[in-house]
C-alpha cells in the first residue's frame, strides 16, 4: 500500500468535516493544504531494462477524460471525488473526448488533448518504431480525495489490465 489506510481514514474523515464549507465555496487552495497526505516511507522502484523500440507502452492521465458517446462522465460534485477509471482507446479522436473534472481549466485540452494525453504523438513514435508497441487501451482518472476505493479497488484493477496487456513501462500525466 502506498499509504497507511488505517491512519488515513480517521484523518480524512476529519478533513472532510472541516473542509466541506471551503470545498463548496470553491476555496481549493485552502483545503489542499490541509489534506492528510499520508504516504508510506521509501520510494518503490522497478529498474527499467531493455529498449523502448521493442517494448510496450501505455498511458494514464488524471484529466477526467471520458468518451462522450459511450461512457458516463466522472462525478465532479462530491468532495470525495470519483475513484473510477475510464478506458480510452488508442484510436480516440479529439471530438469524442469529454472532460469531467471541476478543478482545473480544461479549455486548452479541449483544443488539443495531447497537452494532457499525448496519444497522437505516441502513435507517431510507434509508427516510427521509436517505441515498439502502444497498447490499444489507455486510461483516465479524474479528481479523487477519498483514496481508499482508489487504492483498494481501482488501481489493482488497472495493474491487472496493464499486466495482461504486457505493458513494459507506464507514462502518467497528472493535471
Amino acid at each position: 500500500m502506498p499509504i497507511d489506510l488505517e491512519k488515513f481514514k480517521p484523518e480524512y474523515k476529519k478533513w472532510v468535516a472541516e473542509s466541506l464549507p471551503d470545498y463548496r465555496a470553491g476555496k481549493m487552495t485552502e483545503i489542499v493544504k490541509k489534506y492528510p497526505l499520508i504516504v508510506s516511507d521509501g520510494v518503490p522502484w522497478t529498474p527499467y531494462k531493455g529498449q523502448p523500440s521493442v517494448q510496450t507502452f501505455a498511458m494514464v492521465t488524471s484529466g477526467g477524460l471520458y468518451l462522450k458517446n459511450s461512457q458516463p462522465p466522472f462525478d465532479t460534485v462530491s468532495i470525495h471525488g470519483d475513484p473510477s477509471i475510464r478506458e480510452i482507446p488508442k484510436t480516440v479522436r479529439q471530438e469524442e473526448i469529454g472532460i469531467a473534472h471541476a478543478h482545473y481549466d480544461h479549455s486548452l485540452a479541449e483544443q488539443d488533448i495531447n497537452i494532457i494525453f499525448p496519444i497522437h504523438r505516441l502513435i507517431e513514435l510507434e509508427k516510427e518504431r521509436i517505441i515498439g508497441r502502444l497498447t490499444d487501451t489507455h486510461y483516465s482518472f479524474s479528481y479523487v480525495n477519498d483514496v481508499v476505493p482508489l487504492v483498494t479497488q481501482t488501481v489493482p484493477k488497472l495493474i491487472s489490465w496493464l499486466k495482461a496487456d504486457g505493458v513494459d513501462a507506464l507514462l502518467l500525466v497528472p493535471v
Binding site: P2, V43, P44, S62, F141, L150, P156, L171
Partner: peptide
Amino acid sequence: MGLIQRMVEEAGIPTI
C-alpha cells in the same frame, strides 16, 4: 496520481 504511480511501480512496472 503519485499514489497510482507508486502502486504500479511497486507491482513491477517501471513508471515515469
